[in-house]
Write a protein that binds this DNA or RNA. Structure first.
Lengths: 213, 213
DNA sequence: CTGCTAAGATAGTAATCAATTACTATCTTA
DNA sequence: TAAGATAGTAATTGATTACTATCTTAGCAG
């Protein structure tokens, strides 16, 4: 809030002429990277431009609007997160194995891109029904439906008790990802998120199985 | 992002002269209320001033700086959250009863002030060690230590297994509060946060108790 | 009734924001 | 090789940001 160091990004590249498509992809990466240190509302077009090594005005050669940049970012997030989930489920195994694999895959992705949950949850938390919020809702909601489906399959396979609240369990898994980000900063990044996930997931799984009374 | 409706707050009061102390308290309430719709980085001094019914310049009669406003907000949060935790623990009962009461008290507070987790977690997620981040770390870290202490007591009382990972369990409880905020927006506020907490907490508790093998 | 003080209004400031302009460099291709 | 398309720069726009200087007046002590 005070330093204003401009070395937030490395445009140290040899400054070459790039295609519009390439620049759009670079812009998306820049936004996700900038989200590690700044709130979405604090990410400026100047910062994005500096991050990819072009001037601020040149950014508007590739995007008609700043909101268009955010739309592209959300599209990118939607497809990538969906692809990760597809891969984790397509690998097969028991429903509970798929559930754990999906959870670990999401944790690994967030560990590589810590700004992602910030982007999604920021847009989710605002009341107004902006188009961006609909995209965020679809992404997180879709992830939640996949989780619920796996939990339902685990029930049918006898891996989880039928009395388990599917919706509550799914939301618990989602919020755990966000919780891991908080934990990693609370521990000053001393603990790897993937390692912390290994400690937390068994507790959640026991909770899903319930108490054998 | 586009409407710019100024009716974010209601300064409909009869516009009376107030003491500086009173205005400072109003400013804190205004910030916490504005955090329901905006990210902390998006809360402007103009919005705060409009919210309490004075001009933007008049705000700087009571605060030397904008960071001073945030310091006051964090102080307010620290004392209030600490007071809530003290009350929940002082009420007595078994460690597990105190744990559930503390959890419910925090959920009730967050349900009344949805912007609070946003403020705390926003400051936690940024890497630089700003003075505000130290305050946020103390608040959340202190809450985590209280949770760990209760879990430890529950272990000694035989209410929880000794093998339980205290740290992971405490962080899981903290992130659940944040998860409840996400859930309430994902459900379009159709579900009360307090009610959702009643569904999620038993799952967590079962997870803490572990699987009786 | 009279000053004095502090709360607030009014009206500025420089800096930064998103966005647009006029213009230039570079690549492609007819 | 010349023409058009594309990617880029530099400068500037009006709006908004945090912050400040000057003026006004409410409210209280004497």
């Amino acid at each position: 809030m005070s330093d204003r160091s401009d070395l937030e990004c490395q445009p140290v590249e040899p400054r070459q002429r790039q295609s519009a498509e390439s620049r759009r992809e670079e812009a998306v990466e820049a936004v996700i990277q900038l989200a590690n240190e700044h709130s979405p509302e604090g990410i400026t077009t100047q910062a994005i431009a500096s991050c990819i090594g072009i001037t601020q005005g040149a950014l508007f050669r590739h995007f008609p609007d700043k909101t268009a940049i955010w739309r592209t970012v959300f599209d990118w997030l939607g497809t990538h997160l969906g692809r990760i989930a597809d891969a984790a489920i397509a690998y097969g195994g028991t429903p509970l194995e798929m559930l754990e694999r999906l959870f670990n895959a999401q944790v690994a992705f967030v560990a590589d891109h810590p700004g992602v949950p910030r982007i999604l949850f920021h847009e989710l938390q605002r009341p107004e029904g902006s188009p961006l919020q609909m995209l965020a809702r679809n992404i997180v909601g879709g992830y939640r439906e996949r989780l619920k489906s796996l939990i339902r399959q685990a029930k049918q396979a006898g891996e989880l008790p039928l009395a388990l609240d599917e919706e509550a369990a799914a939301v618990l898994l989602i919020s755990t990802v966000q919780g891991l980000v908080v934990q990693s900063t609370l521990f000053s990044g001393a603990l790897d998120m993937r390692e912390a996930a290994q400690r937390i997931f068994p507790i959640l799984l026991d909770g899903f199985r319930g108490v054998q009374s």
